[in-house]
Design a protein around this nucleic acid. Structure first.
Lengths: 345, 345
DNA sequence: ATGAAAGCGCTAACAA
DNA sequence: TTGTTAGCGCTTTCAT
């Protein structure tokens, strides 16, 4: 359906025997308008149900007041919370948010990014898909003079503002907690190592073991176990070893940890007594399982707010590009029953 | 930062000694271009890293290929899944999605809607905030020739396409299940009755009792218990009654049901033996509590896809307005342990 | 304080 | 098949 003809500034001007320029000035609260005419124009505009055509305005001004967000999945707790945080800030600044999901597909990610470039967004905030290693589409963003901000899953090579969690430190702390609780054979379920976040978690794990003079056992490190099903499968293998682990760190997600818990329970391993379980992300459900799952909170909403705040700080004040650097938020270890061997919680 | 000067169709035209029209035609895959020139133009455009300025294109064409979505909260399971469903379809159709959250505030909802009108979106898909009773902002949408689609929380008076769940039928079925299991004093935690969805659930509840000749007991119906905390509070009251209920239907949400479960457990009521618990929405965690919670699944992702599909069907084919009507999706009762008195699951 | 006029980048009707 | 021209609605410089 073609939209009905809308009221334009010309319609208002005509009605008041003025010109579009004056109407525009009044609508933009310019100082060069007589106070009375301004009032009259504003009143008339309201009466005529005038709505500014943002497309035209932006085209003329060469800006869009729009930020694009690309995430793997919008219905994943982590991302929807980050987006909610971003939205809170952008709304306050009268910016629009265009949201896309890559569905973890590199190809779709490229299409999303290009669509956003076409839209002339002012900034693209992205957390990349697990797939993929060619990131020319991100370079392209920068080439088009669009601000690029990466968060969480960032591409090292692409030099932008990056907001990440200090995965390594958080993991180091979490594993140290396990060791303090008396766990000695700690298994690692790792995620795709082309993503930095999973690499960092592995590093943290390795460092913690080293710091406490625990050996690194290859058979306790399982690749790519990042869904509930893969976590379950890995656990079946691990618990069937001649020398099974006494703790499992599902570095990929709480979903994976959930798979671990279910298998452990069904194989009659006592959690936390015989097996400690550590997840990642503080999904709401980790509080509700029995036993509840120890995990790592990433301050998702706060992260979203931080990202947007940084954007506005750096672009609104000065008018230079955002300084590329990495900002690290320290996640918080949430100790729950699944690792509390020494005390009942 | 001002964006760098981008390649326009004039730049391409100049380079090839053609005019902008030809370039435009080639880029739009029009038939009235020589095949060879088209190829040449496409190649050159790619080389020059040309990106269409969608703002200008849309302004000229009077359309925006953009759909706006307004929901109370994007980081709520129900909504983020619906949005994911919508996004899947709109992406396939090359449409953009602008997402706003009202945060359950009527005022913010109005601002969001107006911002979307300014953006000249083609369609607004909305689920209204719990607050508020004046809906002139929605009428305004229609007056501006923008398609309006309501889902889940719909405003009766505003005549649009509405996609809702058959709350009444689902509730009727669920309560009947409770009765079949032998529960006789079934309490209702109801939501704000200015929202149709909660009214319908109440109606379903009343109908089920009537159908089975069970009395309606006023003291078992609790108003406005729609968070975990309020659900817990209501449960404390209910279970302290001289004649406590033998089942509680948290019609507002699974979160409320979770509050019920926690209080019941702490007050040593056996679930499902002494108290049956029924939630609403099939939040992921309902599977994980002990006992797991019987609830109602709303096919959220499917709902989102349906909404978007209907929009494209009705606007792309004919070019009339969407026929206002109500489409009802039947939710599904998910029977779990919290209501399975008669059998162990 | 207001008006005139140009132009953001694109599309489309018309002409050649 | 290609070019010419006008205009979508707005902002902004320059002139009055």
């Amino acid at each position: 359906m073609k939209p009905k003809k809308r009221t334009t500034i010309y319609d208002i001007a005509e009605k008041l025997n003025l010109t579009a320029s004056s109407v525009s000035r009044a609508l933009n609260n310019s100082s060069n308008v007589n106070e009375d005419t301004k009032k009259l124009i504003l009143k008339t505009a309201a009466e005529m149900n005038y709505k500014r055509n943002v497309l035209a305005s932006n085209l003329r001004k060469g800006e869009s007041k729009t930020i694009g967000v690309v995430v793997p999945r919008i219905n994943q707790n982590f991302f929807s919370n980050v987006i909610a945080g971003i939205e809170e800030m952008t709304y306050a600044k009268n910016f629009n948010l265009i949201i896309c999901q890559s569905n973890e597909s590199h190809e779709k990610e490229i299409k999303c990014v290009n669509a956003l470039i076409n839209q002339h967004v002012d900034c693209i905030i992205i957390s990349v898909a697990a797939e993929g290693n060619d990131y020319t589409h991100l370079k392209n963003v920068i080439d088009h003079g669009i601000q690029l901000i990466q968060f969480d899953r960032v591409v090292e090579d692409i030099d932008t503002l990056k907001i990440i969690n200090d995965n390594e430190l958080a993991t180091l702390e979490a594993i140290t907690h396990l060791i303090t609780e008396g766990y000695k054979r700690i298994a690692l379920l790792e995620g795709p190592q082309n993503l930095d976040i999973f690499k960092q978690r592995k590093t943290g794990y390795l460092k913690a073991l080293a710091q406490h003079n625990l050996p690194i056992v290859e058979e306790l490190i399982i690749e790519n176990a990042w869904t509930k099903e893969l976590g379950a499968e890995a656990t079946r293998k691990l618990l069937s070893l001649p020398e099974p682990p006494d703790a499992i760190f599902a570095s990929t997600s709480d979903f994976s940890a959930l798979g671990v818990l279910e298998v452990a329970t069904s194989m009659n391993f006592k959690v936390p007594g015989e097996l400690g379980i550590l997840g990642y992300a503080n999904e709401p459900f980790t509080e509700l399982t029995s036993p509840s799952i120890t995990t790592i909170d990433q301050f998702t909403h706060h992260m979203g707010k931080t990202i947007a705040t940084l954007y506005f700080q750096e672009t609104q004040t000065k008018d230079t590009t955002i300084v590329p650097r990495t900002i690290s938020i320290k996640p918080k270890l949430i100790i729950r029953a699944s690792t509390s061997k020494s005390q009942v919680i």
